[in-house]
Amino acid sequence: MELLILAIMVTIGYFAGSHAEKTHYASIIEREKAFTKLPTTNLKHPPQDPREVEWAQLVNGNAVMAVDYFKLFVASLRNMFGGRMSAYESVIDRARREATLRMQEMARKQGADMIINLRIETASIGGGTAGQKNGLPSIEAMVYGTAVRYRR
């Protein structure tokens, strides 16, 4: 009986999870294309520019992404045998890109021309590490940097 419930949960997790991932990636790539003209770098100094800097201020973005039941199941199995946990890779990748996009949105709203000195932090939050029954593990990506605007 328990096995049956587990199988149903994993199946639901697989279909719902892969559908959500597909749509999320489509939206990420679409928005990233809109931001290609906003230079983002982790260098401390902006590239040389004849223009004078008008202002520079902190911008940030974050996103918490939870894993679905299917990924949790595959990851628990993977935990036994060791090796690359490809199930979680896309979750972290999505969290990070989503957080970066939110930071870029914030910078654009303020009228920034570029973002420098970017830093990225990742943390596992939400009480659930894999294997605990209460709560699926979730990953937070936090991205911050300095938005710069030139005087025109």
Partner: peptide
């Protein structure tokens, strides 16, 4: 350039 590494534990044992 300006490469940074970070390590985090995303799940138990990983």
């Amino acid at each position: 350039v300006n490469i940074r590494y970070s390590t985090s534990s995303v799940a138990q044992g990983a």
